[in-house]
Every structure is written in structure tokens, then in C-alpha cells.
Design a protein around this nucleic acid. Sequence first.
DNA 1: AGCACGCCGACT
DNA 2: GTCGGCGTGCTC
Length: 815
Amino acid sequence: MNFAQIILPLNLKGTFTYKVPDELLGNFQIGMRVLVSFRGKKIYTGIVAEIHQNDPETFVPKEIISILDDSPILPKEQIDFWHWISEYYMCNLGEIYRLAFPSSLKLESETYLKLKPNVKVDFENLDVNEMYLIQALEVRQLINVTEIEAFIPKKDIVKTVKSLIDLQYIEIDEKIAEKYKAKEIAYLRVNEEELAGNSLPQILLSLKRSPKQQEMFLAILEKQTENPEKPIRKSEILDEGNFSHSQLKSLVDRNLVQEYFLQKDRLEAYQGEIEEIEKLTHEQLQAKKEIDEAFDEGRNVLLHGVTSSGKTHIYLEKIEEAVESGKNVLFLLPEISLTKQIVQRLEKKYGKELGFYHQKLTDFERVEVWRRIKNNDIKILIGTRIALFLPYQNLGLIVVDEEHDSAYKPREVSPFFNAKDATQMLSKFYAANLILGSATPSVESYYLAKKDKLKYVFLGERFGKVKLPEFELINFKEEQDSKKIIGNFSLKLIDEIKKELERKKQTMILHNRRGYANVIECETCGYVNYCSNCDVVMTYHKYSNEMKCHYCGQKASKPKVCPKCHSENLNERGVGVEQIHEEISRLFPDSEVDRMDVDSMRKKFAYEKLYEKIEEGETDIIVGTQMISKGLDFDNIELVAIPRADSMLYVQDFRAEERAYQLITQVSGRAGRISGEGKVLIQTYNPQHSVFQLIKENNSDKIYKHFLEERKKFLYPPFVKLIMIELKHRKEDKVNRSAQFLGSVLRKYLPEECILGPEKSPIGKLNLMYQYQILLKLPRGKKYSEMKNLVLQSLEEFDEITAYQSIKKMIFVDF
DNA sequence: AGCACGCCGACT
DNA sequence: GTCGGCGTGCTC
């Protein structure tokens, strides 16, 4: 008797045991998809995680209904990887499965059934339900499981389907993939035979009464003669010459032009020439050599390269080497919009062998990439964190660009894992090389590199020996005291911007806070506008004239009078980017000032439009949030100003300083990329603050040393391992009680100094859910896994309390 | 997760 | 009298 452990797309612990029917055993392998029923009526696509002979004692396993693949859809490496993520990040395999697979590859009750071809049904021996289903299938070729519910009682569905499959009357529609045919694109060509049979003047004569058709025919002919190899897109002809479909139809009817279709991947392949990569500089060559050596020793690399030092060049070299040696490459980015430079080059050289995979693709597009990866048609995959789960065949190199970016570990979507860290395991399973790259590596990666767990490769020069920007601190307190300010700007800063404008250079102003004012407060009674769903104040957005909650997205109108005491003395407090933008526009009325933040970029193509505008030099000053620190590489920006730099530091998060450093450094990298005349002005009330001083000094070793000392002193990563447990419920007393209970269970097993809390989360209520948290600081190394097991045990004890089952539990490991 | 079952309040 | 609220239990 054979059994299998099946991963189901449900947020449930572990795998489920099913019996493998003997007739399926012939081709039954780990990594294949199977169809199983669960809870009687629902059908799910599961993944075979294990095959064994242990008949379970406590329950009678159900049988697998059918196999959906001829060969494993998931390679062994991925299954190992899933197990690792599940264990390390304490999440369920089902959650990973849900995230990893495009929904069409894990159809549930949507799965379609059809009659087997040329089958003679013996109606005599069928029961009523079976007869209904057969009859329904005779009328309609395909029926999905949900539709069957209309005429067969839910509880009998699986039984009916199964017995008909056993009788060989019906089958699962296995052409799931075929439902997602590659998009076909229409092309046109001149009918060569006609052209050979008749002379061109003859043909044109025959068209003399339809001038538009004649024009169109010539347009097609011209393109075809120009480059006989290049197919001519139908849409291209219609759009360029402004021809109509009916005109084309006449030409096709006359047999002068032929319409044909080519299966074309949705992701367009670039057709053009390839430029050679510029030669690596001496410093880059040295870096590359060090990377090569590290790879020879089987070590992973942290490539720490200052902004515009040409990390991309080095990536490209390594990527091309890997591809040439027959391996495939995964290039990971925090967000897909940041692909510009790397893509341009790769697209030219690899065209169709380049793939993209990210959250913004449609399901159709995702399935297509899956298929291409499976067929080994993609050599280089550029993607975001979900691209970790593609069924790579022959992965030889993984590059994680901007490895410090927090987009690699979003806290909003489960399963919670850090893609940057997970990559290290993925590379291990595939025996692939790994490069983590950044201008501002995370403190953790830097530490690993210094500890020699990663090979540290440093690029300290900008490409072409361009000078790094200079930093200057402006003591805003002093300027304020001597009345040398206007609003949020010191005269000094205003003056510097003026100079840039005169030189026709562009300026960037960073203010990392959305909206216009942080709070609207009643001066009379002190009332502030709280979000009704969350325990946070609502931010005033002047542009849209509304109050917004940045956590749940709720909007409200701006109060005209205090809702509590009806006073009209409402005060705006806390400066947002809109206000900075407004002030700058007022200070420089003749200049073009644009704002870039999530709120102003919401409209379709808003980002692209502004990007073009800046590139064309039509924008003089760009005011924005952290958005401006990424992906905007323009040659003409020389000044970067940060008027209220302190706001970045006073966030209660042990990474606040690291983030501030990263953000300031990243945005400063936009300045003087070509000219080397870049300047960064930081306005602060606290110029003596160590972070500002260290940034000014621009000595990365010293900065990281400082961060590491702080982390060591206050016991934070990388010196301890953090696990944050967050409990949520609609009723505050209930979460509070449950959190106290979990705290006491944890204290039973773990030493007191490891446990902080439980306490109310910094945001005590979010989306109507009250949240409490417990922070665990666990020792590194061997002890860690022991202690983690104790945490697991505590959580199990917690789960045994039925009253707490409705408490939502979120676990963030290494968050 | 998601779905059924089951036990208490406001209503055609 | 019912509809429907969400607490509880269970899934191979």
C-alpha cells in the first residue's frame, strides 16, 4: 500500500496523507500535482511532497483522484526550499504553495471535467448522479466542479466524479496549460505568388479605384522589401498608415496580401543590435577577480559598491559568463520598476531568453513564464521575491540587487520571509553562486561579510573616477535663532537651490513623509483626528483635500470646525512632502517644481510621465519621498537637499538609523553622477548626531562599525535572533488575555531575558483589529534551534486553548 | 483557511 | 415562529 504526503493550498499545518491508488503508481513522483478531495466536497490541486508506505493509524486516508502532470512540475530543489522556508520562518507549506503557484496551476473546485473520447456508456449500471453528470457532459464538453453542484448534492460530487473516472467514462481536463495558449499575433505579408505572376504595375492598376488599398499594399511591400526577415505586424501597418480593417480585408480577399499568425510570447523580444559592454575599469576588474575567486571556493559574495560604481557592469559580466557556461540566472530586484539599466543590456543580447516574473503579471503571463522556465527556454529571469519559486532547472547564479531593501521582507503578506536571506538557501539547494549587491548593505550582511561568512567585495570609486558627492550639514536651530529661515528652509539652502537653477541644473528634495500635515489638531481642546479603524492619527492631504489613514487607507473629509468643541482654531502640525512642495513652489515661482510620492503617482503612467519630464530637463526641482531614491538616474542632478532630516531618525525602530543612512546615501547617489559636482545638504536640528556626522565623513567602515556597536550594546541583530509574535483580535480584552497567556507559556520554557512583552503593538489597533506583540531575542548559533523548538512548543500549547483559536497569530522571524 | 454546525437576538 | 450573527470544530 502506497501513501503520499500532499501539500494543499490551505493555511494548515503540515501535509496530508492520501492513499495512492495502484493504477496511478506507474508514474507517480514527488513534485507532481494531484487532484484530491478535502472535507468531503472540495477538490484541490495538491503537490506530492513525499511517497511512503506507512498506513496512518488514526484515520483512514482518502485516495488521490488523479495525477495532473506527466513529470514533476516542481523540482526537488524547490521542495527542499519550501520545507526550509516553512521551518525557518514558522509558516505553513500551504501558504508557500499559494504564493508560489499561479492560480491556474492550482485549480481547485474550478477544475474541469470532460467525457473521454469514444466511450460507450453503460447507463444501466449508473446511479442517478452519475447519469446526470454524463448527460451534462454530453451537452457541454467541459464542466467544472462548482457547476456540478447545481445538479448533484455537494457531498456526492467527489464520489460521483471518482466513480466515473474509475469507470473510464470521464477524465480531468488535463489541458490546463492549453487553456493558456500563448498569445497569437497577426502579421501580414504580400502574397509572393501573386507578385510573381503579375507585374507590380499590373497589381497597382487593379487597385487604382481603391487608393487606400493601393497605398496599404505599397506600405506592406516596402516594409517587406526593406527587411524580408522581419515579420510585419498587422497592428503596425494599420496604425502607421491609418488604414481600416475593411481596407485590409479587401486586400486579403483579393489574395494580394496574406494574414498569418505567429505564437508570440507576451513578453516582447528586443530586436536590435547589441552593444559591447564598456570595458571594466581597473577597480571593477579587481572586484570581478575577487568574485571569481570566491565562487571558486564556493562562497557567496557581498558586493558593496558605492552609488554609480558600476555594480551593474559586474553583474552583467557574471551573468553572461554563467549563461555561456550553460547555466541559468536569477536576478532579483526589490521592485520590478527598477529594471531599466540591467534590462536594456540583457534584452538586446538575450531577447527571448530573458524572462520577467513579478507581482504585477496577470495569471496568464505567470503561467507562461512557468512553462518557459520548465522548458528551459529562459536563461535569465529578472524578478521580484516571488520569482524565487519558479521551477528552475539549472540555476547557476543568483544576483540580489539592492539587497538592503525592505521590499524583500514585506510585513503585509504571509508567508513572512526575507527573500534576500532565503536566496542564500536557494543558492545552496541549487549549488548556485550568489551575489548580494548594494551601495548600502544591510548591517546584517555587512556583519556576515566581516565575519567571512560572505566574501566582501568593495567598490569605493564611482565609475570613471567621478567624485562622490559632498555632504554639508546645516544647523537648522542656529539658522532659526538668527531668523535666517523661510518656513522649512534656511536661507543658505534656498541660496544653494537658486545657484543650481541659474546653472540650469536639477535639484532633488527628499522629505520622507506623505501628505501635507501629519495631524490636524484643535487648539482649543486638543482634539486630533483618529482613524476609526486604527489607532493612528489621520494625515491631512491638501492636494486631495482629505484626511487619510496611511495604514488602512480610510479617507475622511477635512474637518472645518473641531468635531468635539466646535472651535474653528484648527492647527496643522507636522510637515509632509506636500507642504515642502508647496513651499518650494512659492519660493521659486518661475521654476518647474514636481512632486513624486505614492499619492501623486497613483494615476496611470504618472510615474513614466514625470520620469520623461525630468529626463527632458523640463523639471527643475523634484520634491519627493523615498521614492526618489530609487531608479532615477539622471545626469543633470547636482544638488540633493534634505530639509528635515531629523524626521527619519526619530522613528521607534532599531533600524531607524540604518534606514536613514541608507536613504540619505541612496538619494545622494543621484547627485553629480557624471560631473562629480554633486552636493548634499542636510538640514538638521542636531548636526552633532553621530549618524549625520558619519554620513558626512562618508567612511562606510566607520558607519557600520557604529551600527554594529549599537546593535551589540542593545542586543539586536546580528547579535541576537529576533522573533516577533503578533496577536490580533477584534476584542481588545481577548487579545490582551491571550497575549498574557502566551507570554506566561513562553516564560515557562525560555529564560526571562529572552522575552519582551507582551505589550500593545506600536499601532495598537489596525483595521479594527487590536494587536499585541511579544518580542523574542534569542541567542545565535546552536542554541537558537533548540530555543526555537521551545517557541514552537509554546505556540502549540497556546493553540490547545480553544477560546484562543479565533486569535490571529503572526510570526515574524528575523523581521 | 474555509466551511458546516450550533446556539442566541431582531424581524419578514 | 425564522434569519443570521459569529464561536467552535475539523479537515488526510
